[in-house]
Amino acid sequence: MTGKSVNAIIDEFGLVSASKIPPLGSYLKQTWQRRDFIIELARARSTAEYSDSMLGRVWQLLTPLLNAAIYFFIFGILLGTKKGIENYTTFLVAGVFVFNFMQVSVTLAASALPRNLLLIQAIHFPKLVLPLAVVVQQIQQYFVSLAVLIVIVLLTGEPVTLMWLAMPVVLILQILFTTGLGLIFARWGANSRDINQLLPFFTRSWRYVSGVFFSITVFTATFAEWISTVLLLNPGAVYIDLVRDSLMTSQTNEPIIWIMGVFWAFLFFLVGLIYFHRGERKYVN
């Protein structure tokens, strides 16, 4: 050392700590500067995912279709869950697609950092891009699923109404919520592989209480009212119901569902962002 104190040198030459977390503002700015990187990671993942199969990207279309067919066969025909629901096919397919987007995004976000260890160990960049790339890739998949849904909606005789205009808003809210929840799991999953063992139980339970293949109102008619309320207001059920409400004339929601849709979106997005940012330096060791 030159005799000058470390602090004096740092100040004089504007050196920056390599280990302190940058403030949220500049962290988000760095992430925004790497938006092309986020898109590239999402694309690379899609390429890697489909390059091994002969049908390739056809699976993007086949997977949601097969899912819908299986659920329709089991819950609609074998178990007869459709009691009391008009246009059960659309009701079910909407539930399956809307929920799958959240489930797959959150599951993949939980392993986003361990899966990209080579990249993390090689280059310094805001780690926020990794879970965001997962969500971007899933949004692309979700849009393919939604196109299938629209076809089913029209085939089952639903009219095109003004409510369809609500869809973009519903999707933005749902994406904000999913990103936030994904960021929380991404931080948990970064340092603990145990999360990935537990996650399937969480998402499965969540699926069963979110009315993917049954009507919560009909199903809980004989239960205490608070059970029905809790189920109806959980984010999973909220976003499924908002999509159904927008595309099906037989489904209408109380205004509270819309309010909750906005509430969950901003709450989870903000909490997830702040929580993930606070852990930034924990992702490297």
Binding site: S17, S19, R281
Partner: peptide, 10 residues
């Protein structure tokens, strides 16, 4: 790419 347990790098 590694977090110091003490001290820092600028």
């Amino acid at each position: 790419l590694l977090q110091p347990s003490q001290g820092d790098v600028y």
